[in-house]
């Protein structure tokens, strides 16, 4: 990414409607995002949004580059596609809080 590229937008999913993301990881990542001085967007649950085809998903998909802290990448892409808001192939980084560590996810989200 060149210096002139726009900064990636940040989206954090809390997975609030089911306890499938380790609590410590989602709390830890949120704390790191909060500690940083950066602005970011957070949602209660991308699955809940996809369930009712929330128009915000379209806005997220259209705002690249974007980094998403959520779940398995193929799930996240599938949710957006199912909500008729497919994520573009390029300009999207998905961090997986189900398997990655707090440091891996937060560093991936906040890297320069």
């Amino acid at each position: 990414m060149s210096d002139s590229s726009p900064s990636p937008k940040l989206l954090y999913c809390r997975c609030a409607y089911a306890q499938v993301v380790p609590q410590s990881v989602k709390d830890g990542v949120l704390a790191k995002l909060c500690d940083s001085g950066t602005s970011f967007e957070s949602v209660a649950d991308l699955c809940e949004m996809a369930a009712h085809r929330d128009e915000r998903l379209k806005a997220f998909a259209n705002t690249t580059p974007i980094r998403i802290a959520a779940c398995f990448p193929r799930v996240v892409r599938g949710l957006f596609r199912q909500a008729e808001s497919p994520l573009p192939e390029d300009g999207v980084e998905i961090l997986n809080m189900r398997v990655q560590s707090i440091d891996e996810v937060s560093e991936g989200m906040l890297k320069a």
Binding site: A16, S39, F40, E41, S42, A44
Partner: peptide, 12 residues
């Protein structure tokens, strides 16, 4: 977030 809200953190 745990209550179901979407939250934007907006900084300087």
């Amino acid at each position: 977030l745990d209550k179901g809200y979407a939250v934007t953190r907006a900084t300087a």
